[in-house]
Design a protein around this nucleic acid. Structure first.
Lengths: 187, 187
DNA sequence: TTAATATACGGAGGTAGCCTCCGATTGGCT
DNA sequence: AGCCAATCGGAGGCTACCTCCGTATATTAA
């Protein structure tokens, strides 16, 4: 299976230039950056962009998948961390940073979790599932309130990340996450 | 001062029709609803819309100002409520409902708090100032953590409201707010 | 009632972004 | 060199934003 024919040389070249410019554009203008400008800056017709990436989500997904996978991997590592609650906190903090890289990305990932037709659905859920293990571990260790679900926690993280993005200075998300997190310790 | 000439009859008629349709459109399509469609539905040229409301914010502000004022008034009432923390919670819950009426409204109000040039800045701050008194009262009664600021609380509410809007079912915001709130009780 | 005028109207037109479609081009293979 | 499938590019149709100005009308004064 999955024996994909190698791309033609020009196609591969364009594909990569598009990804580079998309990364720049999204970082600078948020996830709503103009696709036509991305194509322009990549020195490519708009049709070429759409052939390689039929939707904006497809383009974003290609850029983000590696990052999502890295987060899942990090969760797996943290499962052996000696302090379950701190491990969970650290993981969420990292995730928050990741979703803060592009303006508008939080909205996207939060929605993706509830939209099975989204191209990001799969990666998001994979990540959430590993995260759940961190949550369960913290609960089992008696360090986290029993009545909080992984889903809620992830949502709260997204919320904190969103709020951080709507604050003037830096580090807003971390402050809020810490605040919320402190209140979720088992009492 | 403020002796505004009465509007010409046709102008007043159009002004009101525009507000009606804007209310409908924003409720249905969120704050990004098409202005041209609003004008169309109001049976008015696009130029007329822009003359009455030079920007989207101006239109939104006119629709929202009354609502903001009502929230401030509600805060004043709650200042005499016998249970300071519950009063605060109730106020925030009401505010959360209000910002949930239009899709995208939370983003708008959250940004308005940090943008002095926004037309909503004034109303938002007025509201926040009254809310602060509720916060201080709860702290003074020893029911709320001392290290939380009104600004943070409002931000957390916005965050919860945002998250609630990105959840499938109803009542998501209330659930999250309760969760966060419980963690903020004085210990 | 009518005429004069300040006020308000409407939509054409320029800009930009989305996305599709298909004739033109080109890489890779023989 | 020559063929053909793979790929490209951008024109074109759509929607939305916002401005500008010739036209229409409500109001007031005569």
């Amino acid at each position: 299976m999955t024996d994909v024919k190698p791309m033609r040389a020009d196609a591969r070249r364009n594909y990569e230039r598009l990804l580079e410019e998309a990364q720049r554009a999204f970082a600078e203008h948020g996830v709503e950056a103009s696709l036509e400008e991305i194509a322009r800056r990549a020195g490519v017709g708009i049709g070429t962009l759409y052939r390689h990436f039929p939707t904006r989500d497809a383009l974003l997904e290609t850029l983000l998948r590696a990052r999502f996978d890295a987060q899942a991997e990090r969760a797996r590592e943290l499962l052996t961390h000696p302090e379950p609650l701190n491990a969970l906190h650290a993981w969420l903090a990292g995730l928050g940073d990741a979703t803060g890289t592009f303006r508008g990305l939080v909205e996207l990932t939060a929605d993706a979790l509830n939209d099975e037709t989204s191209r990001l659905y799969e990666s998001c859920h994979a990540m959430r599932d590993v995260g759940s293990q961190l949550v369960e571990r913290a609960k089992h260790a008696g360090e986290l309130r029993q009545d909080v679900t992984a889903h809620e926690l992830l949502l709260l993280l997204h919320a904190a990340s969103w709020a951080g993005g709507h604050l003037p200075g830096e580090g807003g998300m971390q402050r809020l996450l810490a605040l919320v997190f402190e209140g979720l310790r088992a009492s």
